[in-house]
Simulated assay, not measured.
Amino acid sequence: MQLSARPFGVTPDGTPVELYTLTNALGMEADIATYGGALVRLTVPDRNGILADVVLGYDSLDGYLDDCCFFGKLVGRVANRIGGARLVLDGEEYELDRNNGRNHLHGGAGGFHSRVWKAKTVETQAGQALVLRYESPDGEQGYPGNLAVSAIYTLTDDGLRLDFSAATDRTTAVNLTAHPYFNLSGRPGADCLRHVLTIPARRCLETDAELIPTGCLSEVAGTPLDFMDGVAIGARIRQDFVPLKNGGGYDHCYVLDSRSGLRSAASLVEPVSGRGMEVLTTQPCIQFYSGNFIPEGLPGKDGAVYGERSGLCLEPQGFVDAPGHEAFPEVTLRPGEAYRQTILYRFFVK
């Protein structure tokens, strides 16, 4: 595997941003920016061996600076929503940044997605990898504790691996994930509704009209949320079903049936190109988001124009709004503990 770097622009405060390119033996490439740790480009072969970019993004840093969709970025300290932007840890309450109405989303407006990460290269068993590090200070976006975070990108023979780790000097909350938008067709700007999705989960988190979990788990069998046997994303997305109406489509956290080790959380197939992707994770849940709020007419890479459902997200993570629900597995990290999480995007053809 090869790794190269080039300048990708400068932030408004004068911080330089670099774009790293990972290349494997099959010619697949992954471009990763130090701004937000964003996955800018990922090329994957179709059934005829033709490589195409399968993630949404922008040609320049300016797009990522103005981005409202979290295209390709690393998000934290806590991914997804925290109701009322209220975090309670060991009986102490913290007020977080409100950036989603009255709620907190993806670590706040100044979360990890908007920070420049420090980068270096390392050798791993799979080859050369890119290590990104960020030091989040005590009180950032309202979170307690100084948090040291690392994210390691490795382009394997058949996919992209992302390993997170974190440590804190004070009890805090951590639930990291990555936010790439996939479209396996290789046709920029096309919608993702014909992609066939499988999620091995019998339950998802019930949410209210603001997409905040109620604390209950809902059975998906017999509903438009059931992807156990593989269904085209567009087959039921417009059905008269309250959870779909609340999210403007799919924006739901599935609780995986299997809870241990690195295991399959979802698989996705685009039938025309034959490209397929399996998402593996060590986390208990995966959020499926069907790109419902991508602005219409959004300028993307290589002259593409994006719009609603131009791409979809599959985001492995812990239980959403876990600090607000005692019955949910916690996402609390304490001094002396090590946070670790792995996401593997494995590609295949069908």
Rank of each mutant, 00 (worst) to 15 (best):
A85F: 10
K73L: 06
C68F: 11
C68M: 09
F70C: 06
L74M: 13
L74V: 14
K73T: 14
L89F: 10
L87H: 09
V78F: 15
D67N: 10
R77E: 01
D59N: 10
V88G: 01
F70R: 00
K73E: 12
N80L: 07
N80M: 05
L74K: 02
D90H: 14
F71T: 01
K73F: 04
V88R: 15
I82P: 00
A85L: 14
F71D: 03
A79E: 03
I82A: 01
D67K: 01
R81H: 07
L89H: 12
G84N: 14
F71H: 11
L87M: 13
G63Q: 00
V75P: 03
L65D: 08
D67H: 03
I82M: 10
R77P: 07
N80H: 14
L89T: 12
Y64A: 09
G72M: 10
C69Y: 03
N80Q: 05
Y58E: 03
I82R: 00
S60E: 14
V88N: 14
L87F: 09
L74P: 01
L89G: 08
L65G: 07
Y64R: 08
R86V: 07
F71R: 09
F71Y: 06
D67M: 04
V88M: 12
G76A: 12
D62T: 13
L89Q: 06
N80Y: 10
I82Y: 07
G83P: 02
R86K: 13
